[in-house]
């Protein structure tokens, strides 16, 4: 399936009470309708108001203008090119471990030499989860066991010959909320160690659950203070969540999106395409 089909399939919305609410609420003016679409997609009140104001000021308020504006906002910043160590970070349960596997699979199919490091030494069975994925997808790996110091695991992994010979080294980390300062410091240290090992040439990517609402803004801001992620991977867009908060993240924080997760299978990761994404946001239902 193509991404557009996948997303469309995922967006086949259920008929429910909400839809009824939605119907009864329609009939307002165009501006209200456009606002409603954006707000329901998690774009958030601030960015929604800004975008609507911008296109109103340009004279013409309609769906096409809105589409163009959204695409422009999402295309403004280029996602990084993945080379050397790539550390995946993010809140609990967002899909980091699965994304390491999917991304490893995608890159190795593109002919790249991939190596995987597992540095979630906290969560129960995090090691075996990643190990099972790596074995299934035949990815070379080095996985720290539960209770080990994650920064040391990253260091040891990056020092290995296999890592040195790889084109891309994908590194899984434990989930953590931005509100937990100790865990954020731990992550900072992991990233610092990796930077030292690779002369600073590493990439940090943040994995966000596509269902996340406006908390994503605070999350990304704080993550940025500690580890400077250069791009986002947004997961679970095969459901009914639209992931519109990435528009706010692009508009307010200049954060680009690299990939989208559209399922639990190994092949369910696709490069981000602003136009397809915007279409899925603006699609009814």
């Amino acid at each position: 399936m193509q991404l557009s089909e996948r997303i469309t399939a995922g967006l086949a919305k259920t008929r429910n009470k909400l839809q009824m609410l939605l119907k009864s609420s329609q009939g307002g003016n165009l501006q209200e309708q456009l606002e409603e679409v954006l707000l329901l997609a998690d774009v958030g009140p601030k960015t929604t108001t800004e975008i609507i104001e911008k296109i109103s000021a340009a004279g013409q308020l309609d769906m096409e203008m809105l589409r163009d504006q959204l695409v422009a906002t999402l295309s403004r910043h280029q996602p990084p090119i993945l080379k050397g160590p790539v550390i995946l970070v993010g809140p609990n349960g967002s899909g980091k471990t699965t994304t390491v596997a999917k991304l490893g699979h995608l890159l190795s199919r593109q002919g790249k030499k991939v190596f995987v490091i597992g540095a979630d030494t906290f969560r129960a069975a995090a090691d075996s989860q990643l190990e099972k994925w790596c074995k299934r997808l035949e990815l070379n790996h080095f996985i720290g066991s539960r209770g080990a110091d994650p920064a040391s695991v990253v260091y040891d992994g990056l020092q290995s010959t296999a890592a040195r010979q790889a084109d891309v080294v994908l590194c899984d980390t434990a989930g953590r909320l931005q509100s937990n300062v100790n865990l954020m410091r731990e992550l900072e240290k992991i990233v610092r160690v990796a930077r030292k090992c690779w002369d600073g040439n590493i990439t940090v990517l943040m994995v966000l659950d596509g269902g996340t609402g406006q908390s994503a803004l605070e999350q990304v801001k704080i993550y940025r203070q500690f580890v400077c992620p250069e791009g986002l991977i947004v997961t679970k867009l095969d459901g009914t969540a639209k992931g519109g908060v990435v528009v706010a993240l692009a508009a307010e924080l200049g954060m680009p999106v690299c990939y989208l997760g559209v399922g639990e299978g190994a092949d369910d990761l696709v490069p981000f395409d602003p136009e397809i994404f915007v279409n899925s946001i603006l699609k009814e239902g």
Partner: peptide
């Protein structure tokens, strides 16, 4: 349910509830 969920929370809850 993840409390960080945005607008989609109600879609999810409603289908499961149904």
């Amino acid at each position: 349910l993840d409390s960080m969920t945005g607008q989609d929370a109600v879609n999810v809850a409603e289908v499961f509830a149904k």
